[in-house]
Design a protein around this nucleic acid. Structure first.
Lengths: 212, 212
DNA sequence: ATCTTTTTGTTTAATAATTAACGAATTAAT
DNA sequence: ATTAATTCGTTAATTATTAAACAAAAAGAT
């Protein structure tokens, strides 16, 4: 048996994730089929792009009827989700870390929030939102023992670098860096960075410059 | 006198914002000059791209010496910052809103955090981190009176749509939407959306698929 | 002084991403 | 039945973004 498993473009992966969330909402509302142009409209995209993304992941719709919502959710799951799940940890349980934690609970069963890390004695040694919180010094053991693959860094900027180093030497394979400090990681670690200040400055720039 | 003021590519604007943050750190460390390849390295970019971005904003370095850090910070400021500043509001002072608020204080003088909005009576009617917090029902008056141009939406997803509508009808010109719900805005409002779950799913996908 | 090295600034080429174009299929209407 | 209208799937064209290439300038070495 032959399994096609090419690498999808990063942009397509992002959009599939976004589509899925919308599709889950559609399903809740009892919608059985959805057209490419409907999905496009909901995401400020073109219908062609939606169809192309769907094509790239190897899924098919029905001419004149659109895509079966339930099946498409499963198809996206086949792409984005790891069969046996992937374990996730958050380092830095301040407001941002807590926001993600809350955001997260119960949403993505294949991404298992497995451990939290902080330095604050009031947070460590207990569960927060049902997830055990450890001291950052325990990163090596816990990451290895619990087979944590993905780390989210939400520590204060001055600790970003050493946090990344700890996660990396503990054997993490992906990092989402939400601090303002760009990180360096070895080739075999996938790094995604996002900075809200940059987004905000972009909004400031374009909202100012684009208006006539 | 002739002022060149073309629209920069979105990607360049993002990078300029990122460069500036790094440059500010360099300045603090007493660094007077920086080479394009140094800046590139710090941001996982190529030196060519850095030079190109700098060129696009009309700034120049010194051959063999690099770019004068202080001047470049100012040059980026001329592009990204509005001379008289732009007023910003956050709607939804939960963990995410609070994280942004903290993140923000004292960092960008040209983006003035002017008002916060929430529905919780414990938060409204007082200052949080030195910024007055109002009930969301007051959005129309406050946005207009205080000339707020940019709104950050960090409310629970089910309120995202109506929050956006309120901000828009109050005359906002840019929105940063950090909820999971994609929004629709009229043409004259600039919209930027970011979803952490999508970032995380991207990390999950690529960290899994790229490893050999 | 001349040569070598380094680094900027800019043009040209390559790559990636998006959009357009259009055939094939399906449904509904006449 | 035939026709008209949609909508998918895919290839081709376009546009945007990134990288390569290289001349010019400056500094340092010989």
């Amino acid at each position: 048996m032959f399994m096609k498993m090419e690498l999808l473009p990063a942009k397509t992966v992002e959009r599939l994730s976004e589509y899925r969330r919308t599709l889950i909402n559609c399903l809740k509302e009892g919608k059985e089929f959805i057209y490419s142009h409907e999905l496009a409209r909901l995401h400020h995209k073109t219908a062609v792009q939606v169809r192309r993304d769907i094509m790239l992941m190897g899924f098919s719709g029905i001419q004149r009827k659109g895509y079966r919502v339930k099946e498409m959710i499963d198809a996206i799951g086949k792409i984005l989700d790891c069969k046996n799940g992937q374990n996730v940890a958050i380092v830095g349980i301040g407001h941002l870390g807590t926001a993600i934690l809350q955001y997260f609970t119960g949403k993505r069963p294949k991404l298992k929030m497995t451990a939290l890390f902080d330095v604050d004695k009031n947070k460590t040694g207990r569960e927060i939102n049902g997830i055990p919180c450890y001291h950052v010094d325990e990163i090596p053991e816990i990451v290895e023992d619990k087979n944590i693959e993905i780390g989210i860094i939400t520590v204060p900027p001055e600790y970003a670098k050493e946090t990344a180093e700890r996660l990396i030497s503990a054997g993490i394979s992906g990092i989402l860096n939400l601090t303002t400090i760009p990180l360096n990681v070895p080739e075999d670690v996938y790094l995604e960075e996002y900075d809200m200040i940059t987004s905000l400055e972009k909004v400031a720039y374009f909202s100012r410059v684009l208006k006539k």
